[in-house]
């Protein structure tokens, strides 16, 4: 188990009101696998990845739980040591490649800085490694791309660069937060294939965050469904797709276009189901409040 999140509760405290955003989330990612975390916007997907990376907004508070990376609880770790893991052992692919790169630096500087920091390479070695990585993400003329600024590249190219940065220090865990959402459909396919290919080659574990069940079916080994800060269902991809246990998972499937069944109509998640899930979430909050009061 490379990543084991247990009963993670996070709330946002703003203007005196406390809003729970993660209600006791559980997640388990096995070594060398890709775990899809699926849910709608606002469901808590991004909060999970920010909590793992320790970059939660200032107003967020972790109320309880543990985030174990290779058996060690990140939340109990000294800040300095935790930061030492970032870039080296844990890396991330951001959603929007056009804003993920610093506009005032050349690609070369943005690829080599992390290599020089973590891998202890000198300028020439880091440059050689950057070229190697750009070739690995199938960028033609990597020499030329290194000299470019981000605004001179297309979105797909930028995402390849971001992916190559994430993989460059051979991390053991990569968190991909909707890495294809901002790209157009043909590029999406290429990027998914690329992530899968690099993941197989390096054996890195990937936590893949998405709202798209089609993407999950294509690249994930297992999947967890999140709604209103709760994990509703987890399991291997085949099981989730063949026999859904939770009505919300079924609703999500009905809401997504299916290439294999082009004639079926799309259904949005029904208001009744949403209401039911919201009631469950409130019930959960009340139970937590009682427990807290009791303790």
């Amino acid at each position: 188990m490379i990543l084991d999140i247990e009963n993670l509760r996070v709330s946002i405290n703003a203007k005196g009101t406390r809003t729970p955003v993660l209600r006791g989330a559980h997640l388990q990612l096995e070594q060398g696998k890709i775990l899809g975390l699926v849910g709608e916007s606002g469901g808590g997907k991004t909060m999970v990845c920010k909590a793992i990376l320790g970059v939660l907004p200032e107003s967020a508070r972790i109320e309880s739980g543990a985030i174990r990376f290779e058996g060690r609880d990140l939340l109990a770790m000294p800040a300095r040591e935790r930061r030492g893991l970032l870039g080296r052992s844990i890396a991330m692919i951001l959603q929007n490649p056009m804003t993920a790169l610093n506009p005032v630096f050349r690609i070369e500087d943005q690829m080599t800085d992390v290599l020089r920091l973590h891998a202890g390479l000198d300028r020439a070695q880091a440059r050689a490694r950057a070229l190697e990585m750009l070739t690995a993400v199938h960028i033609r003329e990597p020499e030329r791309v290194l000299r470019h600024y981000p605004h001179e590249l297309s979105g797909g190219m930028c995402q390849r660069v971001v992916i190559s940065i994430a993989f460059s220090c051979s991390p053991r865990l990569i968190i991909a937060d909707e890495p294809t959402t901002a790209l157009d459909v043909t590029v999406q396919h290429q990027i998914l294939r690329l992530i899968r290919e690099l993941q197989r080659k390096t054996g890195t574990s990937v936590l893949f965050i998405t709202h798209d069940l089609g993407v999950v079916a294509k690249i994930c080994d297992s999947v967890s469904v999140i709604y209103a800060g709760r994990i509703l269902e987890s399991g291997p991809v085949e099981r989730i797709f063949s026999s859904q246990h939770h009505p919300y998972t079924q609703a999500l499937l009905d809401a997504a276009p299916r290439y294999d069944r082009p004639d079926t109509a799309l259904h949005p998640v029904s208001p009744e189901l949403r209401e039911q899930l919201a009631r469950e979430a409130e019930e959960f909050d009340r139970r937590v409040d009682r427990e807290v009061a009791h303790a």
Binding site: A91, N102, D113
Partner: peptide, 24 residues
Amino acid sequence: DYILLARIKGFSNLRILTREALPN
């Protein structure tokens, strides 16, 4: 986002502020 990425690369806050943020 690029500041977030710099943070995730593991750079110190001071370096992020002076090298990544200041030029922008």
